[in-house]
Design a binder for these strands. Structure first.
Length: 424
RNA sequence: GUGCUUGUAGCUCAGUUGGUUAGAGCGCCUGGUUGUGGCCCAGGAGGUCGCCGGUUCAAGUCCGGUCAUGCACCCCA
């Protein structure tokens, strides 16, 4: 039996040095996205199940076998969000989007998918994503992809690889599907079990099957882009042209499909070699989503990057979590009478030195033990408060690095510390 | 959902062909005289050997199941 204290499979507890790394990523994302005029949005982490089923598509793997779905007390079917776009679009639809109005938002947060955990794959994972809604302009796709690259750059991730393809418009789909079926029909008997099933359920997926006989057949298949109508091809050409002119290095991946039904036109992924088998760092595309009751579908383009995977990529590049002290200043209270004054001193120091971590030792244990504590916390300075100091209105300041110590009058302490701890 | 892997102190691990009180390193606590850390020294705390069942005179060691870890597949972030 699993211990109740163990986190559930595919979930984990994240502790201090790592949480700082997460904050670094979040702040970098805010910084970059703000500069592109995006605002942060926070939507619920659970939604009506239909929000996902109707947008991702009820035949997709995510919907069919990966969602955490449950009934609430009123008997409604709810789902822990498996991705971010559907909820954001739901929120925008609910707020109302005026004709011609654009919205640009970004978000971070936990997502949930009931899969077997592996390297870079968790059941609760975290994404940072953006959505640009209300623009059907290919230059928007270009800017979004460029922004993603700039974000990756800003967090030190080099060596990533951008792949781009198009799925065309919904009205192109029937033609693509029948062309693919025509191509695969004589070969499907020799292909893998999954592909034989996909031939009927989802031919497009046969293009990116990784099993051996299938890859060679897929490689010889017609390219999606060549099967599309004029409008779709022009759109994609503009996206590619824009990427080149903006200086985004990318690879045209004619058989990139991606798993969600809401995608139209541009789809893209960013991969990185430092991740293991799941090498996608981020993915996205243009989409069209319509919820029941809306007159017109909402069109947008966005992407999501996996935070855990960004962290893995950074690790593979040697970027590690920042090294922090548990305390910059440790206040030692010697003896029962000094414990409360130590607490009070710590309080005033926190007000004075906003950027520093100040801890007080309330145990009243031996000075040796408290000094060990200060050392373990890697404090820059230990402030010693005992009966003598209380009587004299002073405090002993011991610089841990050099072992030098001085007795300072309490009213000169702030100035003393300010010069000694070149941080504020 | 499938396959493989691993599961012994807080951490990293050792534990011989099943055999008496389960070990190491690191970490932790206390001390090395009066109010001082890091090094050193001495003591100490800490383990139902993941869990359940089976085989056996005897199981951390063998068998089965189960839970969990890691990785891979499917698919995705």
């Amino acid at each position: 039996m699993a211990s109740i204290t163990e986190p559930l499979p595919g979930t984990s507890d994240i502790w201090e040095p790592e949480t700082l790394d997460w904050i670094t990523l979040e702040n970098a994302a805010r910084n970059v996205f703000h500069r592109y005029g995006y605002g942060e949005i926070r939507t619920p982490i659970f939604e009506r199940t239909d929000v996902f089923v109707k947008s991702l598509g009820d035949e997709t793997d995510v919907v069919q076998k990966e969602m955490y779905t449950f009934q609430d007390r009123g008997g409604r079917s709810l789902t822990l969000r498996p991705e971010g776009t559907a909820g954001v679009i739901r929120a925008i639809a609910n707020a109302g989007l005026e004709q011609g109005e654009e919205k640009r938002v970004f978000y971070f947060g936990p997502m949930f998918r009931g899969e077997r955990p592996a390297a870079g794959r968790r059941r609760q994972f975290h994404q940072v994503g953006v959505e640009t809604v209300g623009s059907n302009n290919p230059w928007m796709d270009v800017e979004v992809i460029a922004m993603l690259c700039q974000f990756l750059d800003s967090i030190g991730i080099t060596g990533s690889h951008v792949v781009v393809n198009t799925r065309g418009l919904p009205e192109d789909r029937a033609r693509v599907t029948s062309a693919l079926k025509e191509y695969f029909a004589p070969k499907v008997g020799e292909m893998c079990e999954d592909c034989r099933r996909r031939f009927d359920t989802n031919v497009w997926r046969m293009l990116d099957c990784k099993n051996e006989p299938c890859t060679t057949f897929a490689a010889g298949s017609p390219k999606i882009v060549d099967l599309l109508g004029e409008e779709s091809r022009t759109f994609f050409e503009k996206v590619c042209q824009g990427l080149r002119e903006v200086g985004v290095e990318y690879e045209f991946a004619p058989r990139l499909v991606r798993g969600l039904d809401y995608y139209i036109h541009t789809v893209f992924e960013v991969t990185h070699s430092g991740l293991g088998a799941q090498d996608a760092l981020a993915g996205g595309g243009r989409y069209r989503i319509q919820f029941a009751g809306s007159k017109t579908p909402i069109e947008g383009i966005g992407f999501a990057a996996g935070m855990e995977r960004l962290l893995l990529a950074r690790q593979s590049l040697g970027i590690t979590a920042p090294d922090v002290r548990d305390a910059d200043i440790m206040v030692l209270g010697l003896g029962e009478s000094a414990v409360l004054p130590a607490l009070q001193l710590a309080q005033t120091l926190r007000g004075e030195f906003a950027g520093l971590r100040v801890k007080a030792d309330f145990t009243g244990r031996s000075m040796k033990a408290q000094m060990r504590g200060a050392n373990k916390a890697r404090a820059q300075v230990a402030l010693i408060l005992g009966e003598n100091e209380l009587a004299q209105g002073t405090v002993v300041c011991k610089m841990m690095e050099t072992s030098e110590q001085e007795t300072i009058a309490i009213n000169e302490l702030n100035g003393f510390l300010a010069t000694k701890l070149n941080a504020r």
